[in-house]
């Protein structure tokens, strides 16, 4: 169990790192998908099986494919990207590193007060199931659910307007 955790974590971090440093955007996409899988694995570890599936379907399946489409469409599948200067890259890495150290330093001793009653009742292991999630989504989160349709509609209209070849 623990070793799976470490493996998945390692995989996620490494592939995430590869996303960032891969020369070819296609490679980046693929590494990103790998990261998503690793994250989905974590979801499974945490009993959020439904979310794990959704993560793979939505992210790896839809979003990343969209990325791939665009990259193909624009014919960007080469490593033609000019690198930023070493100095800038180094600064970027240092900045990210400092941020990382800050966050990790701050979170080192964080503990979360666990609600033991949940564990006792056994409900704790069910929350990730479709049934329970569905309940939460359509009861408690009904309004945001409805409103996200507007978000989608807006995004759709926008994407069409911007992406269409000619509007007249």
């Amino acid at each position: 169990m623990v070793s799976i955790f470490y493996f998945l974590s390692f995989l996620a971090v490494i592939s995430a790192f590869m996303v960032v440093i891969a020369k070819n955007p296609i490679h980046s996409v693929l590494y990103l998908i790998m990261t998503f899988f690793a994250i989905a694995g974590h979801y499974v570890l945490m009993n959020a099986q439904f979310l794990a599936v959704v993560n793979i379907i939505v992210y790896a399946g839809a979003i990343m494919v969209l990325f791939l489409f665009v990259i193909m469409l624009l014919n960007l599948n080469t490593d033609a990207e000019q690198n930023k200067s070493i100095l800038i890259r180094l600064t970027g890495i240092v900045a990210g590193g400092i941020l990382m150290i800050t966050l990790i330093g701050a979170f080192k001793q964080v503990s979360i007060v666990k609600d033991t009653t949940f564990y006792a009742s056994g409900q704790a292991y069910d929350i990730g199931l479709v049934k329970n999630l569905g309940n939460t989504l359509f009861k408690e989160f009904l309004v945001p659910f409805e409103l996200s349709s507007i978000l989608f509609l807006a995004a759709m209209v926008g994407a069409v307007m911007l992406g269409k070849k000619d509007i007249k």
Binding site: T102, L103, A106
Partner: peptide, 17 residues
Amino acid sequence: LFAMVFGIIIILLFNLI
């Protein structure tokens, strides 16, 4: 983006450490 991140780093550094 760099500038933003620097701002963020400074803010977090001052408040967290």
